[in-house]
Amino acid sequence: MRILITGSAGFVGSHLVERFLNEGHTVIGVDNYISGQVSNTDLFRDHPRFTFIEADVSHGIPYTGEKLDWVMHFASPASPPHYQQFPVETLMVGAQGTQNGLELAHAHGAGFFLASTSEVYGDPHVHPQPETYWGNVNPIGVRSCYDEAKRYAEAITMAYHRSRGVNTRIIRIFNTYGPRMRPDDGRVITNFVHQALRGEPLTVYGDGSQTRSFQYIDDLVEGISRLMMVKYHEPVNLGNPDEFTMIELASKTMNLVESKIDLVNLDLPADDPKQRRPDIGLAWKIIKWRPLKGIDSGLNRVFDEQKIKS
């Protein structure tokens, strides 16, 4: 297949590039490096079946090559520090960037694959969160630039499917971690690992009782690959249902280092969800998918990678 991936220099995007090249496909990567990393593009730059286009997909996707089989829209800042630094750009890539990707897919008769997020559920009143839950989102809060961009992206994706027949897929990605995350990503696993490696106190927001569930990148990529192969157009949760408090995650991180590490508590950020856990019953029903890697082995791999780099 010939697959165009927006956000190809990002954390998830670069792993998709790797997966599809290894499977023998041709990949066109598109990124403007607002949150992606040049080093992620450099991994594949010399590959004969990889082409890179540096562009802001909010302004258009300058692809004029052969017929595409898939357009996969993974471009967007995804961590709170990054999307709050670039709120307008985040809204635009979720809105205009998504439409540009849909138009390209429609013109090529290609499938369109949208990376949405568990953030569409906001601070949920339903736990765990199934795809049928409509969410509890503050539309004007500091996180809204990301939450509402993704909610709009889902809406326009379904509109193109219903009115123009585009063959669409939508995933709602729950917290994902693994190699190639930016050191300044700002999400909890990256923060904890880098703080532990530097011997600094681990930063816990609030009292640390809020929960998250964490899936390893390989599990997410496998779910994406499986969903491409079935005809299902509405959103599908991809995440690990194993749930941990931030205190529990901090304890697991501390176990990776030999020296004593302290905790420091800071104020809870505005609109920070109190709990987050996916209901993955639908993913099991339609693609027989569930995550295979637990938090302990995944944390070890991330810690070892960052230890080598530091």
Rank of each mutant, 00 (worst) to 15 (best):
M1A: 15
M1T: 13
T6P: 03
G7Y: 03
G10N: 06
F11I: 02
V12Q: 04
H15I: 11
H15F: 05
R19Q: 10
V27L: 07
V27Q: 06
Y33M: 15
I34P: 04
G36H: 06
T41S: 00
D42M: 13
R45T: 06
H47Y: 04
F50K: 03
A55P: 07
H59A: 05
G60I: 00
L68W: 00
L68K: 09
M72V: 13
P77L: 00
P81T: 10
H82L: 10
Y83E: 03
F86G: 05
F86V: 03
P87Q: 08
E89R: 03
L91A: 10
G97R: 00
T98V: 08
N100T: 06
G109M: 00
F113H: 09
L114H: 07
E119P: 04
V120T: 15
Y121H: 14
P124M: 00
V126I: 14
T132L: 08
G135I: 01
N136G: 07
N136A: 15
N138D: 15
I140A: 14
G141K: 07
E148G: 06
A149R: 00
A149M: 03
K150A: 05
R151F: 11
R151C: 10
A159P: 03
R162C: 09
S163I: 07
R164C: 11
N167F: 09
I170E: 10
I171F: 13
T176F: 02
Y177Q: 01
Y177K: 13
P179W: 02
P183R: 13
P183W: 09
P183Y: 00
D185P: 01
D185Q: 12
G199I: 00
L202P: 12
G206S: 12
I217S: 05
D218P: 05
L220G: 11
V221R: 05
S225F: 12
R226N: 07
M229T: 15
V230E: 01
H233G: 10
P235A: 10
V236C: 15
L238D: 06
P241Q: 10
D242F: 02
F244K: 11
F244P: 05
L249Q: 11
L249E: 02
S251V: 05
S251G: 13
T253Y: 03
T253H: 02
N255L: 11
L256K: 14
D262T: 14
L263E: 07
N265H: 12
D267R: 14
P269K: 10
Q275K: 15
R276C: 14
I280Y: 07
A283S: 15
I286F: 02
W289M: 01
R290T: 13
P291Q: 01
K293N: 12
G294L: 10
I295D: 09
S297V: 15
N300V: 09
R301I: 15
V302I: 01
V302T: 14
D304S: 13
E305I: 05
Q306A: 09
